[in-house]
């Protein structure tokens, strides 16, 4: 069983999947909204006190301090302070609601930043297809199933309205 957490740093959206292995060790998948490649990390962690813990990543121990205020997380790590917001999963549900449709629609008004596939490409379930920037955040449209790209409706750079079809995929 893995747990999923979504965060927002004001510029990008991130998804972190955490699977507990045994005791205090985890396998973590980080899906970055800023276009950087997805990472799988092995980590073990230990609580030190309120908001204080350490984790070990590739034999390096990090000490970390986190404070929370509602959804906001204040994180002190490696001599730097970060402020990120935890985004509830329900806010992400629009992606799943579209899953049954062969043509994928824009979640909100925005701009097409990048097309990652072209018509005729074979795609796998979960593969990123299009990067859309909306409300200063980048969102990726992922393939809901394995299939072939039939049609891409807009070129890169185009402004789009909410709920317009962006790409069509034929399942199979």
């Amino acid at each position: 069983m893995s747990e999923v957490f979504n965060f927002d740093d004001g510029k990008h959206r991130f998804e972190v999947r955490l699977r507990r292995n045994k005791n205090n060790s985890y396998v973590v998948m980080i899906h970055r909204g800023d276009g950087a490649e997805e990472k799988e990390l092995q980590v073990s962690a230990k609580v030190l006190g309120t908001g204080q813990f350490q984790f070990s990543l590739d034999n390096v121990i990090y000490k970390c301090s986190v404070a929370k205020d509602g959804d906001v997380r204040f994180i002190h790590l490696d001599g730097e302070d970060y402020e990120i917001t935890r985004v509830s999963e329900t806010a992400e549900e629009f992606g799943e609601a579209e899953e049954d449709l062969g043509s994928l629609s824009s979640p909100m008004p925005g701009r097409i930043v990048k097309l990652l596939v072209k018509p005729g490409d074979r795609v796998k379930k979960g593969q990123d297809l299009i990067v859309v920037e909306a409300m200063k955040m980048e969102n990726k449209i992922a393939a809901p199933f394995d299939g072939t790209v039939k049609k891409v409706f807009f070129p890169e750079g185009d402004q789009i309205e909410a709920n317009v079809p962006l790409i069509e995929i034929e399942e199979g």
Binding site: E3, F5, F7, F14, V16, L18, R20, Y26, V28, I30, R32, K39, L41, V43, A45, G51, F53, F55, L57, Y62, C64, V66, K68, R73, I75, L77, D78, Y82, I84, R86
Partner: peptide
């Protein structure tokens, strides 16, 4: 990534 990792670890 370390910060995102820390944020998720904090949640659990």
């Amino acid at each position: 990534n370390e910060v995102l990792l820390a944020a998720a670890l904090f949640e659990v």
